[in-house]
Amino acid sequence: MIIYLVFLFILLALMVGAAIFSIIQKDLLYAVIGTGVISLILSVLFFLLQAPDVALTEAAIGVALTTIIFIITIRNTVRFEDEHDRKEAGESKKFINN
């Protein structure tokens, strides 16, 4: 039974990593994908804790609906917070067209 606690703590550590990434990221698209990863792992955690109905709702709303609405918002506004971040990202991603 102790092995399931170890699995639970590994998933929690991965979720904290994704949350820190999502907070410190300046590119808003990556931050939105980070929130998608958070709700994905959270859904598996709900499933491990014997709450499959909550996991189903979290998967439907967190992974799909929130991500899609935020992406449409980024499409209608801007992807980077200020001009300096945009230039920095443009230099490091010169070889790919976005």
Partner: peptide, 29 residues
């Protein structure tokens, strides 16, 4: 076996999210 429904919903919806992100990167959303 009823728990497999969650995997089904999960697969359908995450597919949708990845398609939307890919369309945004392609600049055709």
């Amino acid at each position: 076996i009823i728990y497999l429904d969650i995997a089904l919903v999960y697969g359908l919806l995450s597919f949708l999210a990845v398609i939307i992100i890919a369309k945004y990167l392609e600049k055709s959303l």
